[in-house]
Amino acid sequence: MADQPSADPAEPPGARAAGSGTERPAPAAGMAAPASTVNPAGPAGTAGTSHLAGVPNAAGRRPPVRVLLADPAPLQRAGLRTLLTTPDAGATAAAAAAGSAAEIVIAGEAADGVDALDLARRLLPDVLVTELALPRLDGLAVIRAITEARLPVRILVVTDEDTDDRIVAAAGAGATGYLCKDAPHDQLTAAVRTVAAGGAVIAPQLLARVLRRLTEALPARSGSGTAALDALTSREREVLVHVARGLANTEIAEVLQVSETTVKTHVGHVLTKLRLRDRTQAVVLAYETGLVKPGGPQDGR
């Protein structure tokens, strides 16, 4: 696939651009099924490059969250597509009308890492939902490439691989979400929306187990980590606590009764003062220093 968009981007035989009304010839008998599907425009023909995704606009409406799926198994992609585009079982009509949960739409699909990276570059989805075991280019390599290119694409890993090494490696590469494939429907959709809004998600059953390993992934520091927190103001420490608890910027703004812009400024100050690369390292530091304890009360003092 070419990296540059065109009026008729090259796609594997049988692949169809959603909403185009045209379909390329199906593969001959015995040939592989289509490897990728593209919906460049998103719903109603509108470009979907709003970040942070799912945040209400001036009219109070939440723009849809555009998702790119990457998994080598067609049935798995079909299952994810169905789960993500089907309203949560617990959602009420009133909540939907109020725009309390952003709609999730599928911008494209890929069966291997090369196509996943190409589509991420061309479509700039809000979230890439990816398996780690991808042919042609491993999922970790895809995550690193997206992170190093600073694409405005957030990454949620959904996989059967739940070993400590793989989780730590995914977080280190730049993923901000990690779920197992047996995650419930509501947990999956909530994770997509949280990651799209700038938050971080790790399946609860995995978090406690890998926390120690994540701590080991922190860069070496001079002096104690607790002393490093002294550089933060009381409000910045409070924001760090909420970040460590997994809240997105919009949720922190609601809790603290401030604007989302103010929260983003505080988060930026925290990362700069503590010399951290991203929110994931901030979460690890908060637990490492005892500012937040697994299952314990919040301690913003």
Rank of each mutant, 00 (worst) to 15 (best):
N57A: 08
P9F: 01
G225D: 12
G42Q: 05
L123R: 08
T272W: 08
L285P: 00
V241W: 00
G300Y: 14
P219G: 12
V243T: 12
A107E: 00
Q187R: 14
E103I: 03
G14L: 09
R66G: 12
P74W: 09
V55N: 12
D278I: 01
V168F: 01
T22F: 13
E238W: 14
R245I: 00
L140Q: 02
L119D: 00
D299P: 02
G223D: 03
P63I: 00
T49C: 02
G113I: 09
L256N: 07
R61N: 11
A97C: 07
A7T: 12
A44F: 08
L117F: 13
T289Q: 06
D112H: 13
S222W: 11
V201H: 09
V258L: 11
R213W: 03
I104S: 07
G139T: 11
T147P: 01
L119G: 00
V195D: 09
V263R: 09
T189I: 03
A33G: 09
P27N: 09
R66F: 12
V270I: 14
E161V: 13
T85S: 11
D278T: 00
A70I: 09
A149R: 10
A18N: 04
A47P: 04
T22K: 14
T194Q: 13
A183K: 05
L240N: 02
V105G: 03
A120H: 05
A220Y: 08
Q76L: 15
P12G: 11
A101H: 13
N249P: 14
L134C: 01
P27Y: 11
I146A: 10
A98R: 15
A53H: 02
A133L: 04
A248W: 01
P125L: 10
R122V: 09
T92L: 10
D126L: 00
A47G: 13
E161F: 09
E161D: 15
E131R: 02
G246W: 12
A196M: 04
L119P: 02
L137G: 00
A101M: 10
I104T: 05
V127G: 02
L124D: 05
R154I: 04
L151R: 02
T46M: 10
P297Q: 01
P9Y: 06
V127A: 02
T189H: 03
A248V: 04
D299A: 06
L124N: 08
A70K: 01
V38M: 11
A170D: 04
T37E: 13
T233C: 06
L229I: 13
R66Y: 12
K181H: 01
